[in-house]
Design a binder for these strands. Sequence first.
DNA 1: ATGGCAATGTTTCATTGA
Length: 259
Amino acid sequence: MKLVTWNVNSLNVRLPRLIDWLAVHAPDVVGLQETKTEDARFPHDALRQAGYVAHAFGQRTYNGVALLVRDGLSATDVVTGLPGFPDEQKRVIAATVAGVRVINAYVPNGQSVGSDKYAYKLAWCQAASAALSDALAAHRDLAFLGDMNIAPEPRDVHDPALWDGQVLFSEPERAAFGAWLSLGLVDAFRRFEQPPNTFSWWDYRMLAFPKNRGLRIDHILLSTALAERCTACRIDRNARKGDKPSDHAPVVAEIADRA
DNA sequence: ATGGCAATGTTTCATTGA
């Protein structure tokens, strides 16, 4: 099973690129973030023609998530939002596919340390911990993936000194990420040897991408049982190149079939 | 091996993102 997370920064704008990418990589399950698309306007037909059934939880302008499931697989027990955390912002959609509980999240950005949005981010992360704890108790095979808007370690930041204490890399955010790992989740990317300075997001401004001034903030976290079956995890930097890219690149994890 | 913000709607600027 090939699992993907990708913040597309507007599904409407990125749909042609997404469909091209799906044709090349043929993932089984894709978690999208920042679709910025109301469910009534979700491009189900185009994605179905590309071989995917979509489950969407969106809103206009901001946020919005979706799960794409390749033909031949099906999604059951679709749940939207974080249990116990009422929220107008549409940031979470979960489903079970081929026995794997997939929780796709667009974690709040936080704007700046100390802001109201930062407090909301930390509260959201705590609610996510509670939801993940329950989900891990119910599902041996679980993947928590998405745009987590947290760079967990200095090596996930192009210039840790510059980012020290800043939003996306502040200690409380990194502690929240660490709390998810403490529940028994494993960062799939770090299970494997990786090229140094591998990131998943680069600012559109100031030549950040060609200079590789990025952050690794998009993640695939796996339950220990699922992590043992994970055979590869990589970030597709190529998807950040060319005309009208998202500012995020997709993260791809390969899961071996159960022996 | 890449390109100097992008997307949206409140639209000709303001807001948000990260």
